[in-house]
Amino acid sequence: MDRSDIAKLAELARLQISNEHADEVAQSITDVLALVDQLQAANTEGVSPMAHPLDAVQRLRADVVTEPNQREAFQAQAPATDKGHYLVPKVID
């Protein structure tokens, strides 16, 4: 892990890591990865990955409208709104 690796990850995660912190962050993530790398020694041949602790299956929901309009309550929490829209700096495709 070096500064450029951290910069790439920070970009993916939309975090801003200052140059003065980059080395420190790189070091701590290197330490964490060293811990995690113990996994590589495990024999996992033929073991299927487990995404959920229980072997349950998804329940399906009936297609019935249950949600009323609560725009006012939700937008009371928003940093910036106008005419019912959430505002962000201009989106450029």
Binding site: I6, L9, A10, L12, A13, L15, V25, I29, V32, L33, V36, L39, Q40, A42, T44, V47, S48, P49, M50, A51
Partner: peptide, 23 residues
Amino acid sequence: ILVGAYALSAGYYDAYYRKAQQV
């Protein structure tokens, strides 16, 4: 967040995320 992004990123998914799910 950074560690997680790393473990899921292209080229590392199998070695980290998938491996961890197997373990």
